[in-house]
Amino acid sequence: MVDKIHVKTTINGLPQEFLVDPFMSLLETLRDVLNLTGTKEGCNDGNCGACTVVLDGRIVDSCCVLGAEIEGKTVETIEGMAGPDGLHPLQQAFLEEAALQCGICTPGFLVSAKALLEREPEADEHRIRYWLAGNLCRCTGYDKIIKAVQKVQA
């Protein structure tokens, strides 16, 4: 048996310290060690993007990252998205545009879309669709999600 690893990191702006099995994914670490269950497991093999988080400024599939890898890094999850004044504009737009049905993919879409708009506020529809290609949704058919992102840009 391998020993747990001690990790010090920053999650949603707050310092965090925890012990984790070295073979545990960041997704499992967030959900099962830190109780941050907003990040969802979809495929667990890097295809669906439901587990998307921001790691040192880049979106990644947290199922393809080890929890031990975030030592000294910064992670942003869906839990960090709404502020003290309420929902993030993207979250509000997803509600208003009905850009979700079952909701499993939604945290991943929101984290990805937020990262896009921070980098490229003027992204056109083609770019939005391309950027979000790593996030799969089996309910909405995507159009409502794209409209919600565009609503925030307007």
Binding site: G49, R58, V60, D61, C64, G134
Partner: peptide, 9 residues
């Protein structure tokens, strides 16, 4: 290759 999430890593 992959999506943005994969390209990032």
């Amino acid at each position: 290759i992959g999506g943005i999430q994969i390209q990032s890593r």
